[in-house]
C-alpha cells in the first residue's frame, strides 16, 4: 500500500486513470474535482467552468464517465435537488484526494522546472 492509500484509505479505488501521484492535467476526473472545488455544480455548469479555466471542452459522455467513477469512489456526491439537473459536491475524501493530486503535480512541476534551470 502506498502512502496515499494509507492516508486516505481508498485502496482499490482509482477514479484517476493513471498514477495516484501524477495525473495529466487534462484528466477529466481531475478537471471535475477542480471545478467542484469552487462549489457545487451540475453537469452543464461543470462543462462550461472546465472550458473556462482549462480551455478543455469535455463531451457529455466523457464528463459523465468521470462523474460516475468519482461518485463510485466517494470523491463526489449528488446534492439533493428538485431540478432535473443534478448538482454534485466535493466530499471530504474528494477534497483530500484533490489536495494530494495537486501536491503530486506540483512536485513534478518543481522538479521539471529545477532540472530545466540546471540544464
Amino acid at each position: 500500500m502506498n502512502i496515499f492509500e494509507r492516508e486516505v484509505g481508498v485502496a482499490n479505488r482509482q477514479p484517476f486513470g493513471y498514477s495516484y501521484y501524477v495525473t495529466r492535467n487534462n484528466d477529466p476526473a481531475l478537471l471535475v474535482l477542480a471545478s467542484l472545488a469552487e462549489g457545487d455544480k451540475h453537469g452543464y455548469a461543470m462543462m462550461e467552468d472546465i472550458e473556462r479555466f482549462s480551455s478543455i471542452k469535455l463531451g457529455p459522455g466523457t464528463l459523465y464517465g468521470a462523474i460516475t467513477r468519482l461518485e463510485e469512489s466517494g470523491w463526489i456526491a449528488p446534492v439533493p435537488s428538485d431540478d432535473r439537473r443534478q448538482p454534485y459536491t466535493l466530499t471530504a475524501l474528494g477534497r483530500k484526494s484533490l489536495e494530494h493530486e495537486i501536491a503530486a503535480l506540483n512536485d513534478v512541476l518543481k522538479t521539471a522546472a529545477k532540472r530545466l534551470r540546471q540544464a
Partner: peptide
Amino acid sequence: YGNEFGAFL
C-alpha cells in the same frame, strides 16, 4: 444517471 444525463443533453 439517465434522467440527469438527459437533462444535460
